[in-house]
Simulated scan of single mutants.
Amino acid sequence: MLKTYFPNQDFKALLFDFDGTVADTMPAHLGAWNKALNKYDLSLSREQHQAWAGRPTHRIVEMMNELHGTSINPQQFVAEKEVHYLASLNEVSTIASVMDVIKHYHRQIPMAIVTGSRRKIVELTMNQLNLQPYFDLLVCAEDYTQGKPAPDCFLLAANKFGTDPKDCLVFEDAVLGIQAAHTAGMDCLKVIEDFSLSHTR
């Protein structure tokens, strides 16, 4: 299956971003953002949401404060946004092209979720979608300091697997995540708009 993209490579670990890559959560997250931002008379466009994808929520709040001259409390906002997101959890589904890969290589190659989202939210979403059995490792926002496009999260996953970064393959939908993967020295497949997979260089 992966030989279609990498005929001469045998990967020793598969690292998956979560939101917009394994699970089609982005509409639910964007809706939650805008419900939580409404009380501050602010909104987030789909384009801006996608451009910032991969960064932890609290960091995006800090960036919005800088952009709009506001003083939203990041921790409080994270809690408010999470309530709205969890209320729409039943609208979330998996992404078929990526799930095909996950099911195909399950029990053959170690697999990790590597995300900028908080562990609690990822675990609740994974439970909703019955994804827990497929993954050997979760690397979430609490586990590292420098978010994407820094390579730290992917390098941490490789280290936990005891795998050389060049032997890891990343699956990503966001520009920042793809940059992080390449900076980590890893190959990357992009989940594009129609949810098919595309080779990135």
Score class of each variant (00 low, 15 high):
Pro133Thr: 06
Lys35Ala: 09
Lys35Gly: 00
Val191Trp: 01
Cys168Thr: 12
Ile192Thr: 09
Leu37His: 09
Phe11Asn: 05
Met63Thr: 01
Thr115Tyr: 05
Pro27Leu: 04
Gly54Tyr: 08
His199Trp: 03
Asn90Trp: 02
Ser198Arg: 08
Asp194Trp: 05
Val22Ser: 02
Val92Ile: 15
Asn8Cys: 10
Ala28His: 01
Arg119Pro: 00
Ile72Met: 08
Ala87Pro: 05
Glu123Leu: 15
Leu137Pro: 09
Phe171Trp: 07
Lys160Pro: 02
Ile109Pro: 10
Asp167Asn: 14
Ala23Leu: 00
Phe161Ala: 14
Trp52Phe: 04
Arg46Ile: 09
Phe6Ser: 06
Thr57Gly: 05
Thr25Met: 01
Lys190Trp: 05
Ile178Ala: 03
Thr57Ser: 11
Tyr144Ser: 13
Tyr40Leu: 08
Asn159Asp: 13
Glu123Cys: 09
Gln146Ala: 15
Ala32Tyr: 04
Asp17Val: 06
Gln9Glu: 15
Ala174Val: 10
Ala174Lys: 00
Val139Leu: 10
Thr125Asp: 06
Val92Ser: 07
Asp152Phe: 02
Lys190Leu: 08
Met63Tyr: 02
Cys188Ile: 12
Glu172Asp: 10
Ser117Met: 11
Arg59Cys: 03
Met26Cys: 02
Ala13Pro: 07
Phe18Tyr: 14
Ile60Pro: 05
Arg55Phe: 04
Cys168Trp: 04
Val61Arg: 03
Arg118Lys: 13
Val101Asn: 09
His182Pro: 07
Asp19Val: 07
Ala112Trp: 05
Leu129Gln: 10
Leu30Val: 02
Gln146Asn: 14
Leu155Asn: 11
Asp143Asn: 09
Arg55Ala: 10
Lys190Met: 13
Gln108Met: 12
Glu66Arg: 12
Ser97Glu: 11
Leu176Arg: 14
Phe154Gln: 08
Val139Ile: 15
Phe6Leu: 06
Ser97Arg: 09
Leu30Arg: 07
Asn90His: 15
Arg55Val: 08
Asp194Tyr: 01
Trp52Pro: 00
Glu91Cys: 11
Gly147Asp: 08
His106Gln: 12
Ala150Arg: 06
Asn38Asp: 11
Ala112Asp: 09
Ser198Lys: 10
Leu176Asn: 14
